[in-house]
Each structure stands twice: as structure tokens, then as C-alpha cells.
Design a protein around this nucleic acid. Structure first.
Lengths: 228, 228
DNA sequence: ATAATAATGAACTAAGCAGTTCATTTTTCG
DNA sequence: CGAAAAATGAACTGCTTAGTTCATTATTAT
């Protein structure tokens, strides 16, 4: 327990595309229950956290014998890290759809905001956040990976878009990083803490939209060029 | 495990003031190691979380025998809840200093913002947040108490101040709750996720001030009355 | 068909941890 | 001092859980 896997992701015997499978047929696919194991582990880990989840529970959920599970993953920590890595990738894809450059600034912000808030609202988003935050002490490098492949990535893309808009003269921004952070945080207003601390498990749809709408208005009031 | 202590705090045999002690001398103070137990438990729980902390570790840290510990607290959960309750109160006190009504709007916002950000920056604030979020699944009512006595309380006081400022004509706000949430979130911009996900354990002081400064500017751009 | 590979399940080890017990020692206080 | 209250520590119970083993069964490919 220590330096292994300190960065990067595991790719543990699952071809993650068609091209890979074509190049090396049947290399590491050691069994057919691999996906079941991952699916079961994801369910249980997201529900119970690392300590709360027992390997027996995971095996049962996966519909797989414990021996099979251990045939794929030598220990519980590696399985946990693999799940977290997968969730990072999924989170990235969640925000991956391209932004149309022909949009107005408001429309672009609105779209980005709805996606950011939507992720937080999803069961998966909530559980993943809680999991990574809670287990961050035991797995610091994992929390960092999650951050880099999730929040940080969203931040960078947003800052990139803002940069272009500022160059076009549609926005007036001096500190791009700060502006991007501000917008992201504003989208979470009214919803973040209530979710994290389990106040309202499912906030009303209109409250979320209201939050994003408010974020856009505020952002434009500060950085918009039209004045009076 | 269930309904007990579903709301409210434990007051487990420690006079929490002088008046109490004067009224009932020597009621529940069954021993002199009470404070040591609490101190040790706080250290270990904040460091390791609920599952990660073993009762033996706590006793050792407290400089107290396990038997003594169990003489005060019948089980681990009750001790944990007591610690969390204490941390809630402490968090409340953290933001308790009164606001001078003669201040300018900007100065008031700056003060409030620095306090909010300061709490997040503190080791205690970070650990407490992680603890409550991570253990929220096991102790949902505890996460709610923490939220009510912390973030929600800050929100309410801020909204109250904003209400007065709006009545005085110094601000133009239609949705007070939203405005309060927005300001609070803005203060966390640039620092929250980096802390929660353990990117930079100690951000530079100036970056925090910059964040709060940016929050005030943005807030005034949106809700200030001076226009052009 | 048959041989190789994958999966099973059930029993097992070893360790850690919550909570208990109690004979002995220390502290407090009249 | 001397008695009552508090603290000790070390051993012990009972339970949970990570990880192993292996003889048996199912699946796959040639």
C-alpha cells in the first residue's frame, strides 16, 4: 500500500473500445464476469463507501463468487480505485458535448450551468462526491485524480471559452480563472450544501433552473460589456 | 441505533457555563477525565473519521483507559455524536461576532466573506466538513444538525442583513435567499474544491482575499444601486 | 468429444475491533 | 488517616471482515 498507481488509471483487462480489441484479440480478458464485478462494486461502494462496503456484499451484488472477484482484483483497495477511476471518466464524458460557437454568451453560460448543476443533482454525482470527499483521507491521490478529471477539467474548458469571448469583445474579464470559478460556484448556489448535507434529496427542478438563471444574470452584470 | 438523539445536542455531564454549575453543584461530573476523553475523541475522529477511529486509539490519545472512556460514554456512536454536536456549536461561535450596522455595504460583505472563507481554510473546518459529509450516510440526522447550525445559520444571518440593506435602499434585491447563497458561494470560489479534494492543503492568504474581494465586486455589480 | 479455462461455494485463517469484567491502584475529601 | 469514588490495565468475549484454498461444476474452443 503506497506508491503503486499513484497516478493514471487502471485498465485491468477490459478493452475500452473496438480498435483495441481488434489489435490484440483476447489478451487480458481472463473471464466473462469482469463487468459484473465492476457493476456490483460500483453500486455497493457508491452506496456504502469504502469501509461500509464488504467484499461479500459486493460479490453478492455482482452475482459472482468471492473467489472469482479475487481472481480479478487482488485486493479491495485496487477494486475501489478502479471504480473511482471509472467514475472520473464518466464524469468527464458527462460534460463533454461541444459548445456551439454561434451561441450567444447567455445561451452558452446557461447550457454550461445547467450541465454543472445537473451533475450535482444526479444520484450518481452526489454519491461520487460524497464518496471521494469522505474517503479522501485514506486515498489522497484518488481525490486528486477525481478533482483533475472532473471539476478542474470543467473549469479549464469554461475558462477557455471565456477567453475567446473576452477576445471577441463580448466580455470584459481580467482574471479568467477567477471568473470561471465564480460562475461555477454561482451555479451551485442554493443547491450544493443542501445536497451534500442531505437536506433535500431531490430539489425541485425549477429551483435549479432559477439558480443557474441567477448565475448567468450575475455573471453578465459583472463581466458583460453592455453598460446601462 | 435509530431514533435516539434524533435532534438536539447531548449535554453529557459537563457544565457548559458557570450558572449551571452554581445551580446544581456536582451533579453529573462523575470524573475528572471527561474533558480529556472529549479532546482525544475530537482529535482522532477528525483525523480518521468514524470507522477509521478505533476506541483504543481514542483512549490512548486521550491518555485514559478504555474502561474510563466507557464509563462516560456507553458506546462509540454516542461519543461520536457528542463530538459532532460540539463542533457544530464551535462553528456557530466562529461566525458569531456581531456586525456593526454603521459599516458600508462593501465593508460588511468583506467582513462576512473573510469569515466564511476563513472557516473553510482552517484545518478544523476542513476536517469537520469532510467528516460530516463522509459519515452523512450513517448519521443523516447529524449531517442535518451540522448544516442547520452551520451553513444554514450563516445564510439566515446574511439574508437578514441584506434585507435591511435593501430596505435602506443601499441594495436592490428581489430574491434574498438566492442573493445570500450567491454571495456565500462566491466567497468559496477558487478555494472550495481545491481544499475538499486535497489539492493545496494551505492556500495562500492573498488568494483567499482575492476570492472574497472578487465576490464583493461581483455582488455589488449585480445588486448595487449605483448604476454607471 | 475433450481438454483447457473460468467460475463456484463453502469452509477456513487471521486479524481487528467494540464492548465487558475485575482485581488493583490512585485520587479525593471529610 | 481512612473510606468512598474514580481510574487503571490487562485479559477476555464475540463478532465482522479481508483474503485463501480447493474440490467440484460450468463454459468455451478446437
Amino acid at each position: 500500500m503506497g506508491g503503486l498507481l499513484s497516478c493514471g488509471f487502471l485498465t485491468y483487462g477490459r478493452e475500452n473500445g473496438v480498435s483495441m480489441a481488434q489489435v490484440v484479440e483476447q489478451v487480458v480478458r481472463r473471464g466473462r464476469k469482469f463487468d459484473q464485478v465492476l457493476a456490483g462494486a460500483r453500486t455497493i461502494f457508491l452506496r456504502d463507501g469504502f469501509d461500509g462496503a464488504s467484499v461479500d456484499d459486493i460479490a453478492r451484488q455482482a452475482g459472482v463468487s468471492k473467489a472469482t472477484l479475487y481472481a480479478y482484483f487482488p485486493d479491495k483497495q485496487l477494486l475501489f480505485k478502479e471504480i473511482c477511476s471509472q467514475e472520473c471518466l464518466r464524469q468527464t464524458q458527462e460534460v463533454e458535448a461541444e459548445i456551439d460557437p454561434a451561441m450567444t454568451v447567455e445561451a452558452m453560460l446557461m447550457l454550461a450551468g445547467v450541465r454543472i448543476a445537473g451533475f450535482l443533482m444526479s444520484d450518481f454525482g452526489q454519491n461520487a462526491c460524497r464518496l471521494v470527499i469522505g474517503e479522501g483521507a485514506r486515498f489522497p491521490e484518488l481525490a486528486r485524480d477525481f478533482y483533475r478529471n472532473g471539476p478542474a477539467l470543467v473549469h479549464d474548458r469554461l475558462a477557455h471559452h471565456l477567453h475567446h469571448l473576452a477576445q471577441n469583445g463580448q466580455l470584459q474579464i481580467d482574471d479568467l480563472d477567477l471568473a470561471a470559478d465564480q460562475f461555477i460556484q454561482l451555479c451551485k448556489a442554493s443547491i450544493l450544501e443542501k445536497l451534500v448535507f442531505r437536506m433535500d434529496h431531490h430539489l425541485r427542478e425549477d429551483r435549479v433552473r432559477q439558480s443557474v438563471q441567477g448565475a448567468v444574470e450575475m455573471f453578465m452584470a459583472r463581466y458583460g460589456v453592455q453598460r446601462g
